[in-house]
Deep mutational scan, measured.
Amino acid sequence: KELVLALYDYQEKSPREVTMKKGDILTLLNSTNKDWWKVEVNGRQGFVPAAYVKKL
């Protein structure tokens, strides 16, 4: 599985998104969309802005 690092805090704005804190390590589930990547964090799956994370 591929991991990404949260570069910034992000507060979810819809049920399809997830909240993350700067420094969190997230599991990358899908990065086919250039703007929104699907990740898993704390057992929850959802989208975060691709610009807010970096592949490890």
Rank of each mutant, 00 (worst) to 15 (best):
K1G: 13
K1C: 12
E2A: 11
L3Y: 15
L3F: 15
V4W: 09
V4K: 01
L5A: 06
L5Q: 12
L5P: 01
L5M: 14
A6K: 01
A6N: 01
A6Y: 01
A6Q: 01
L7R: 05
L7Y: 04
L7I: 10
Y8K: 13
Y8Q: 12
Y8S: 09
Y8F: 13
D9M: 04
D9R: 03
D9G: 06
Q11H: 14
Q11I: 15
E12A: 14
E12Q: 14
E12R: 15
K13D: 06
K13Q: 15
S14V: 05
P15A: 13
P15L: 10
R16V: 12
E17A: 06
V18D: 00
T19W: 04
T19N: 07
M20H: 01
M20V: 11
K21A: 09
K21S: 10
K21E: 06
K21D: 04
K22I: 07
K22V: 08
D24R: 03
D24E: 12
D24F: 05
D24W: 14
D24K: 03
I25D: 01
I25F: 07
L28N: 01
L28C: 07
L28W: 02
L28A: 02
L29F: 04
L29Q: 04
L29A: 03
N30I: 09
S31N: 09
S31Q: 10
S31M: 10
S31C: 10
T32D: 15
T32Q: 12
T32P: 04
T32K: 12
K34E: 12
D35A: 14
D35Y: 15
W37G: 00
K38R: 12
K38G: 06
V39N: 00
V39E: 00
V39R: 00
E40D: 09
E40I: 08
E40H: 05
V41G: 14
G43D: 08
G43V: 04
G43I: 03
Q45K: 11
Q45S: 12
Q45M: 11
Q45D: 08
G46T: 02
G46H: 02
G46D: 01
F47S: 04
F47R: 04
F47P: 00
V48T: 02
V48K: 00
V48E: 00
V48N: 00
P49S: 02
P49M: 03
P49A: 02
A50H: 03
A51V: 10
A51N: 13
Y52C: 09
Y52L: 12
Y52Q: 05
V53S: 01
V53P: 00
K54G: 09
K55S: 09
L56W: 10
L56K: 04
L56T: 07
L56P: 03
